[in-house]
Amino acid sequence: MTDMSDIERLIAIEDIRVLKSRRDRACDTKDWDLYRALHADDHVSHNQGFERWDSADIMIENVKALLGKGRTTVHHSHTPDITFESATKAKGIWGMEDLIFDSETEELLIHGFGFYHETYEKRDGKWLFTSRQLKRTLVRTSPETKKA
């Protein structure tokens, strides 16, 4: 438990919800400057099937390579479970669904479901992502994707 008032906690939850919404939108619209600005420099990502990425810059380069040119993405995050370690540190688990399409053919390549496990810190008055781990519970892939 923290020393946060109910109002402070609700405002922080809403700030983190907006942070997450901006992250999904930035990813899907390929607004890489906004995407990078939402993450602390020391952000760490570790997603199933990939090496751990130990900085925001490494993470953004990998995300751009995986989801950038030639891919259309749709990310939905919902039902957040946000808890606070302090007034400036929080953890969140979000239900998620993502779809990844070939931009040219519009073929669905990946349809995933699962959970984002994230941490956040309030630095210089704004909430930032400090870590993310994607744990998918189900992934559907196209036959062509399975061959690759």
Rank of each mutant, 00 (worst) to 15 (best):
A87M: 09
T83C: 12
K69A: 13
F50Q: 10
T105I: 02
E85A: 05
D57K: 08
Q48V: 01
R36E: 11
H75Y: 02
D33E: 13
I82P: 00
T79Y: 08
S77C: 05
M59K: 04
D98W: 09
A37D: 10
D54F: 09
A56F: 00
Q48A: 11
R52M: 13
G92K: 00
W94D: 12
S103W: 03
F101A: 15
D41P: 04
H78Q: 12
W32T: 09
D42R: 11
M59A: 11
E97Q: 04
G92C: 11
N62R: 04
Y35H: 15
K64V: 08
L99E: 06
H43V: 11
D54K: 04
A65M: 08
D42G: 11
E97N: 09
K89E: 14
S103V: 06
R36Y: 13
E51K: 05
K69H: 13
P80D: 15
A56C: 09
H76T: 09
S55G: 01
E104R: 15
E61S: 07
D42A: 06
A90P: 00
I100H: 11
A40T: 01
D81T: 09
A87H: 01
S45C: 05
S45H: 07
K91H: 12
M96K: 06
T83V: 09
D42E: 15
N62K: 04
M59Y: 12
I93F: 08
L38N: 02
W32C: 07
I100A: 13
E106D: 10
I100C: 13
D98G: 09
T83Q: 03
S45W: 15
I93L: 08
E107G: 07
K91M: 00
M96G: 01
T88D: 13
D41K: 02
E104K: 13
H43N: 07
T79C: 03
Y35P: 02
V44C: 04
D81S: 14
V63A: 07
G70M: 05
K91V: 06
A87F: 00
R52K: 14
K89V: 05
T79F: 03
D57R: 02
T72E: 00
R71G: 01
F101E: 05
P80K: 13
E51C: 06
D42M: 04
E51V: 05
I93S: 10
D98A: 09
T105S: 13
H76V: 14
L38F: 02
G70L: 06
I100K: 08
H46P: 12
L34W: 12
W94L: 10
G68Q: 01
H76C: 11
A90I: 01
L34H: 14
F50I: 03
K64F: 07
S77G: 06
V74H: 00
W32E: 11
E85F: 02
R36M: 10
S45K: 00
V44E: 03
L109I: 10
E107L: 11
I60G: 02
R52V: 14
T72R: 07
D54M: 02
D57M: 15
H43I: 09
F84L: 07
V74E: 02
D33T: 15
N62L: 13
G92V: 07
H78F: 14
M59L: 09
S103P: 05
H78P: 00
H39W: 14
E85S: 05
D98V: 15
G68F: 04
H46A: 12
V63E: 03
F50D: 10
R71C: 05
S103G: 11
E61A: 15
E106S: 08
G68W: 06
E107W: 07
G68M: 10
R71F: 02
